[in-house]
Lab assay of single mutants.
Amino acid sequence: MSDQEAKPSTEDLGDKKEGEYIKLKVIGQDSSEIHFKVKMTTHLKKLKESYCQRQGVPMNSLRFLFEGQRIADNHTPKELGMEEEDVIEVYQEQTGGHSTV
């Protein structure tokens, strides 16, 4: 019986991991920090939209990076291997420009 009891508790931990929340720091170019608590399985588009709304800027005017890689709207913290207190960097999107060649 103890084996049966242990097995469901392991499964519960697996389920808990799926719905687990982590805190992420979003740091802007001006070094301002906003902290977000997100589920591991939530699409990061929600975090990006919330950040842009707080900053009063359109979402397409900023780019969000985690460990140097651009974050897509459909990425989740779990897919990117994010952990508690990880940092997302935000930069002004640069458009235009010309070749110097």
Results as ranks from 00 to 15, higher is better:
residue 1 M to L: 09
residue 2 S to F: 12
residue 2 S to Y: 12
residue 2 S to G: 12
residue 2 S to T: 12
residue 3 D to E: 09
residue 4 Q to K: 09
residue 4 Q to P: 11
residue 5 E to L: 10
residue 5 E to Y: 13
residue 6 A to V: 14
residue 6 A to F: 12
residue 6 A to L: 14
residue 7 K to I: 14
residue 7 K to H: 13
residue 7 K to S: 09
residue 8 P to F: 12
residue 9 S to F: 08
residue 10 T to W: 13
residue 10 T to I: 13
residue 10 T to H: 11
residue 10 T to V: 14
residue 11 E to D: 11
residue 11 E to Q: 08
residue 11 E to A: 12
residue 12 D to N: 13
residue 12 D to T: 03
residue 13 L to V: 12
residue 13 L to Q: 10
residue 13 L to W: 10
residue 13 L to K: 13
residue 13 L to I: 11
residue 13 L to F: 11
residue 14 G to F: 14
residue 14 G to L: 14
residue 15 D to Y: 08
residue 15 D to A: 12
residue 16 K to T: 11
residue 17 K to S: 11
residue 17 K to P: 10
residue 19 G to R: 14
residue 19 G to T: 15
residue 19 G to S: 11
residue 20 E to S: 14
residue 21 Y to D: 06
residue 21 Y to V: 09
residue 21 Y to R: 09
residue 22 I to K: 03
residue 22 I to R: 06
residue 23 K to R: 15
residue 24 L to K: 06
residue 24 L to S: 00
residue 24 L to T: 07
residue 25 K to I: 08
residue 26 V to I: 08
residue 27 I to V: 10
residue 27 I to K: 11
residue 27 I to M: 06
residue 27 I to F: 10
residue 27 I to W: 14
residue 28 G to V: 04
residue 29 Q to C: 08
residue 30 D to M: 05
residue 30 D to Q: 06
residue 32 S to I: 10
residue 33 E to P: 04
residue 33 E to T: 00
residue 33 E to W: 01
residue 34 I to N: 03
residue 34 I to K: 03
residue 34 I to D: 01
residue 34 I to L: 07
residue 34 I to P: 04
residue 35 H to E: 07
residue 35 H to G: 06
residue 36 F to K: 00
residue 36 F to C: 03
residue 37 K to H: 04
residue 37 K to G: 04
residue 37 K to D: 05
residue 37 K to L: 07
residue 38 V to H: 00
residue 38 V to I: 15
residue 39 K to C: 05
residue 39 K to S: 09
residue 39 K to H: 07
residue 40 M to W: 00
residue 40 M to Y: 10
residue 41 T to I: 10
residue 41 T to E: 04
residue 42 T to N: 02
residue 42 T to Q: 13
residue 42 T to G: 06
residue 43 H to D: 12
residue 45 K to A: 13
residue 45 K to E: 11
residue 45 K to N: 09
residue 46 K to I: 12
residue 46 K to N: 09
residue 46 K to D: 05
residue 46 K to R: 13
residue 46 K to W: 10
residue 46 K to E: 04
residue 48 K to Q: 01
residue 48 K to R: 01
residue 48 K to D: 01
residue 48 K to G: 00
residue 49 E to Q: 07
residue 49 E to H: 04
residue 49 E to S: 14
residue 50 S to A: 13
residue 50 S to I: 15
residue 50 S to H: 08
residue 51 Y to G: 01
residue 51 Y to S: 01
residue 52 C to L: 02
residue 53 Q to P: 10
residue 53 Q to L: 11
residue 54 R to Q: 13
residue 55 Q to N: 10
residue 56 G to E: 07
residue 57 V to I: 14
residue 57 V to H: 01
residue 57 V to C: 04
residue 57 V to L: 11
residue 59 M to D: 15
residue 59 M to F: 14
residue 60 N to H: 10
residue 61 S to L: 09
residue 61 S to G: 06
residue 61 S to M: 07
residue 62 L to T: 03
residue 62 L to N: 05
residue 62 L to E: 05
residue 63 R to F: 05
residue 64 F to L: 05
residue 64 F to Y: 01
residue 65 L to T: 13
residue 65 L to Q: 01
residue 65 L to C: 03
residue 65 L to G: 01
residue 66 F to Y: 13
residue 67 E to F: 15
residue 67 E to V: 06
residue 68 G to V: 02
residue 68 G to M: 00
residue 68 G to N: 06
residue 68 G to E: 02
residue 69 Q to I: 04
residue 69 Q to C: 11
residue 70 R to A: 09
residue 71 I to N: 01
residue 71 I to S: 03
residue 71 I to Q: 02
residue 72 A to W: 00
residue 72 A to R: 12
residue 72 A to S: 15
residue 72 A to C: 11
residue 73 D to K: 01
residue 73 D to M: 03
residue 73 D to R: 01
residue 74 N to T: 11
residue 74 N to W: 07
residue 75 H to F: 05
residue 75 H to K: 06
residue 76 T to C: 08
residue 77 P to G: 02
residue 77 P to D: 03
residue 79 E to K: 10
residue 79 E to W: 07
residue 80 L to N: 00
residue 83 E to L: 14
residue 83 E to Y: 12
residue 83 E to R: 13
residue 84 E to T: 10
residue 84 E to N: 06
residue 85 E to L: 14
residue 87 V to F: 14
residue 87 V to Y: 14
residue 88 I to W: 01
residue 88 I to L: 07
residue 88 I to Q: 03
residue 89 E to R: 07
residue 89 E to H: 04
residue 90 V to N: 02
residue 91 Y to Q: 06
residue 91 Y to I: 00
residue 91 Y to V: 14
residue 91 Y to R: 06
residue 92 Q to N: 06
residue 92 Q to V: 14
residue 93 E to Y: 11
residue 94 Q to L: 14
residue 94 Q to V: 13
residue 94 Q to K: 07
residue 95 T to N: 06
residue 95 T to W: 14
residue 95 T to Y: 00
residue 95 T to S: 10
residue 96 G to M: 05
residue 96 G to I: 01
residue 96 G to A: 01
residue 97 G to F: 06
residue 97 G to E: 01
residue 98 H to T: 08
residue 99 S to C: 08
residue 99 S to Q: 09
residue 99 S to Y: 08
residue 100 T to Q: 09
residue 100 T to L: 09
residue 101 V to S: 09
residue 101 V to H: 06
residue 101 V to Y: 08
